[in-house]
């Protein structure tokens, strides 16, 4: 089982770097994961990541991209409610990259 080390702690991840246990998540882990992808987490990134975590806590499922863009637009303003904005933040796809940093389980299906 692959692991990553953050702040002296060893954390189990799968072969693509998704957390095995969601309870392991911390902000430092998200930052460390992003660093590996050469991505510096800004306030804009955190807005999306925190939204994903809240959504998951409420519904126990990661939102579909369309739901995500709409909800982001509603919460953070219409200029941010489009997939272009999300892809600028997370170039490998919000469903994949953002979920990974947020410590959500790997999205299923061919997204």
């Amino acid at each position: 089982m692959p692991t990553i080390e953050v702040a002296g702690k060893t954390i189990e991840v799968d072969e693509e770097g998704y957390l095995q246990n969601r309870t392991d998540w911390s902000e430092e882990i998200a930052t460390a994961m992003a660093k590996e992808d050469d991505c510096d987490l800004t306030q804009n990134h955190w807005e999306v990541i925190n939204f994903l975590r809240e959504y998951y806590d409420e519904y126990q499922i990661a939102p579909a991209v369309r739901v995500l863009t709409k909800a982001i637009g509603k919460k953070l303003g219409p200029d941010k409610g489009n997939s272009k904005y999300l892809y600028e933040l997370f170039p490998y796809g919000p469903a994949k990259q953002a979920c990974k940093y947020a410590g959500l389980p790997k999205p299923t299906g061919c997204v």
Partner: peptide
């Protein structure tokens, strides 16, 4: 088993 591979800037196109 599936996964989540993609290229920079794209969300789809890879299985």
């Amino acid at each position: 088993k599936g996964g989540t591979v993609s290229v920079f800037g794209y969300g789809g196109g890879i299985i």
